[in-house]
Amino acid sequence: MASALPETRPRTASAGVRLSGLSWAHFLNDGAANYLPGILPALLIQMNLSVALAGTIMAALLVGQGLQPFFGLLADRIGGRVMVFAGLLGSSLGGALISVVDGPVFLIGVLVLIGISNSLFHPQALAAVRRLSAARQGTAMSYFLVGGEIGRGVWPLLASWVVVSWGLGALWILALPAIITVPWLLRWAPSLPARAVGQAPIEWRRHAGPLSLLVGFCALRALMIFCVITFVPVIWAQAGGSLTAGASFITVLMVVGIVGNLAGGRLSDHYGTRPILVGAMVASCLLMLAFLQLSGVWLWLVLALLGIALFATLPLTIVVAQDMLPENRSFGSGLALGLANALGAVGVMALGPVAQVWGASAPLWVAAGGGAVAVVLALVLPNHRPQ
């Protein structure tokens, strides 16, 4: 049957081009789905909303990612690549709709649509990357994820520049590259085999413990990232800083984090995942605390190092999840990325009132404490060893 075929590597040039194309699609998808923090201070002012609602607005964007495990199961069942197309198109068109929002209810509805579309894209795309890389899977996963990190880093700055230059109504311009790219996915995305109907079901009792630990680790990491990208621009705006300068914090965190993403995947191919996960999360906690104590140019430097540490863990956790569920890799990817991000989004929403009462920096202290718990979880996670 198709699902029993070995994962052979296509010709090197073809595999490299297709992986690059998928990374570009990831750049566009995650850019469209994550530029909200760069314009959030402007939205709060335009709609006359309090900072306590900043977490709720971000949660509306991110909580839809909790559907990734469901879409992962569906992707494994139907195979193909249609969900990659639908996800990229939906995220981009949803991002364009932000340009015409006229109230918080409409805004939240659009953000939920973007989150659902983002959930459609990732599980099947991540499984496709695994299929393109028979060996050096950590490195290939890192290369794909780099596209998303650059998108999440560049798009907030670009969106803030568009808003400052032409207003919120011009944000539709950012959807044009994705619309042009969608047809090219026919060349780049491999058509995945459908899961055999008679295949053995997932052994939930055996996987529940390790999967719970992994999702907990990823959720605490997501909480650290979301707190930074949600509240740091707000802190900056409240101190009188410009919209584009506030968005630059997100750009530094995400774009410089590429170094960690690539390094984490490459190191895991040599030393395994556990030592990298533990070391990176210890560094993340210390850097978060340092950020809260410093000022001036040191803020950007510390955020750059924090991005390297946090994103060094991202490809590793996806590979570990796929190892746990080798016959349901889309589902495993959805748990490690989507469900964990949704839980992190709920945490950000809960911290909105904390920011209102104790200041916008208070959620960052809470996130640093969550990072310390993640270190403990990393010590007991399954270790993906190099082949």
Results as ranks from 00 to 15, higher is better:
residue 304 A to N: 09
residue 118 N to Q: 11
residue 280 A to F: 00
residue 175 A to W: 03
residue 55 G to M: 06
residue 40 L to F: 09
residue 163 V to K: 09
residue 74 L to Y: 12
residue 338 G to H: 08
residue 281 M to F: 04
residue 117 S to K: 05
residue 380 V to I: 15
residue 120 L to A: 03
residue 129 V to W: 07
residue 282 V to Q: 03
residue 354 V to D: 09
residue 76 D to Y: 06
residue 113 L to Y: 14
residue 236 W to P: 01
residue 184 W to R: 11
residue 118 N to A: 12
residue 213 L to C: 14
residue 142 S to Y: 03
residue 384 H to P: 02
residue 137 Q to E: 15
residue 146 V to C: 11
residue 1 M to F: 03
residue 109 G to S: 09
residue 122 H to T: 15
residue 271 Y to D: 02
residue 43 L to V: 09
residue 121 F to P: 06
residue 139 T to D: 11
residue 157 L to Y: 14
residue 342 A to V: 04
residue 229 I to G: 07
residue 318 I to M: 14
residue 239 A to S: 14
residue 83 M to T: 08
residue 39 I to N: 08
residue 356 Q to A: 15
residue 9 R to Q: 13
residue 35 Y to Q: 03
residue 102 D to M: 08
residue 300 W to S: 04
residue 9 R to Y: 04
residue 21 G to E: 01
residue 49 L to A: 13
residue 3 S to A: 14
residue 368 A to G: 10
residue 36 L to Q: 10
residue 18 R to M: 10
residue 188 W to A: 15
residue 352 G to L: 05
residue 282 V to F: 08
residue 158 L to N: 05
residue 209 G to W: 11
residue 204 W to F: 13
residue 115 G to P: 14
residue 29 N to T: 15
residue 333 S to V: 12
residue 135 A to Q: 13
residue 173 I to M: 14
residue 34 N to G: 12
residue 130 R to V: 00
residue 194 A to K: 11
residue 189 A to Q: 09
residue 348 V to K: 04
residue 147 G to C: 11
residue 69 P to Y: 10
residue 344 G to D: 09
residue 12 T to L: 12
residue 281 M to S: 01
residue 216 G to K: 02
residue 278 V to D: 02
residue 371 G to A: 10
residue 119 S to F: 06
residue 163 V to F: 05
residue 275 P to L: 09
residue 212 S to N: 05
residue 324 M to Y: 03
residue 210 P to Y: 07
residue 133 S to A: 15
residue 367 A to H: 05
residue 9 R to S: 14
residue 164 V to I: 12
residue 277 L to W: 00
residue 84 V to M: 13
residue 285 C to Y: 00
residue 194 A to V: 09
residue 46 Q to V: 11
residue 294 L to M: 14
residue 60 A to R: 04
residue 379 L to F: 10
residue 101 V to G: 01
residue 29 N to K: 01
residue 94 G to E: 04
residue 303 L to N: 09
residue 304 A to E: 11
residue 278 V to K: 00
residue 350 A to S: 08
residue 5 L to F: 04
residue 21 G to L: 03
residue 164 V to T: 13
residue 104 P to I: 08
residue 272 G to Q: 04
residue 53 L to P: 00
residue 44 L to P: 04
residue 18 R to T: 05
residue 272 G to C: 06
residue 307 G to E: 07
residue 247 A to R: 12
residue 91 S to Y: 07
residue 116 I to E: 06
residue 44 L to A: 02
residue 58 M to R: 06
residue 165 S to K: 12
residue 62 L to C: 00
residue 187 R to F: 14
residue 54 A to R: 05
residue 362 A to F: 06
residue 140 A to R: 00
residue 71 F to W: 12
